[in-house]
């Protein structure tokens, strides 16, 4: 098994598929970017409404988060793949099941899944800012919105950036779930290449390609972590004009 890894002709054969790898990598990147946008949107909406005082919004957000955090992504994607086309057929009354594009499937899959995690990140971020900050802002005459905008959110943002970037990193790797439903992503193509050739070079190439996408994100996480530990220094402000 290991000996085969040092066989140059197998490497040549694996590299001959570089076009296919590229096609898969492009798909993976597309799914990752769109999936990240969807998950951020969902995360912000559900994260913010779970910190409001409205009970029903809190419950809705809780249900969303708990459901997606506590079921495997693979099951969710299998459900979207095998179930959604028929459900949509029923709703829209078409003659055939409504086929979802693989891109959409991936974006929904990782978007909803990571949206739940991001909602939690945002909720804990908002709750982590001490209550005294809000009270101090009110005492200085800030309105509710101004307090959020100028006092709470800037502090939240610094706290949540490292875990957010971490979610983005995991999201990229989780796009590989598409391989199980013939999704045309990087893992799908590498798995096909490996099973057609019978040797493992394809997996190594795909590891390297995933690494190329993920390493910059991991580096970003580390940088943000270091930055979030620093004590804030006041910005240089222009002297206020006296009216």
């Amino acid at each position: 098994m290991v000996k085969g890894l040092f066989n140059i002709s197998r490497w040549e054969e694996a590299f001959a598929n570089m076009d296919t790898f590229g096609e898969g990598m492009l798909m993976t990147i597309k799914v990752a970017i769109l999936g990240l946008l969807v998950s951020l949107l969902l995360g912000i909406i559900f994260g913010v409404i779970s910190t409001t005082k409205v009970k029903i919004l809190q419950i809705i957000s809780r249900i969303y988060v708990e459901f997606f955090q506590n079921t495997p992504l693979v099951v969710q994607v299998f459900f979207y793949y095998n179930g959604l086309p028929q459900i949509l057929q029923g709703i829209l009354g078409t003659s055939r099941p409504v086929r979802l594009s693989k891109l959409l499937l991936g974006v929904i899959g990782v978007g909803f899944y990571h949206g739940a995690y991001i909602a939690e990140v945002i909720r804990t971020g908002i709750e982590a800012v001490p209550k005294g900050q809000t009270e101090a802002a009110y005492s200085q005459g800030f309105t509710k919105i101004q307090t959020m905008r100028y006092i709470i959110l800037p502090q939240t943002l610094k706290l949540i950036l490292p875990p957010l970037a971490n979610q983005a990193l995991n999201l990229v790797k989780n796009t590989s779930v598409l391989a199980l439903v013939a999704g045309g992503d990087l893992m799908y193509h590498s798995d096909n290449i490996v099973s057609n050739s019978g040797f493992l070079q394809g997996y190594i190439i795909s590891c390297v390609l995933y690494f190329i996408i993920c390493y910059p994100l991991a580096a970003l996480v580390r940088r943000l972590e270091i930055r979030s530990k620093k004590t804030p220094t006041p910005k240089k402000m222009k002297p206020m004009e006296v009216a």
């Binding site: 085969g4 040092f6 002709s9 019978g198």
Partner: peptide, 14 residues
């Protein structure tokens, strides 16, 4: 490292 590989290669497996 390929030079020390003396196994015959075949299309269908390790």
């Amino acid at each position: 490292g390929s030079k020390d590989s003396d196994t015959a290669t075949t299309a269908a497996g390790e």
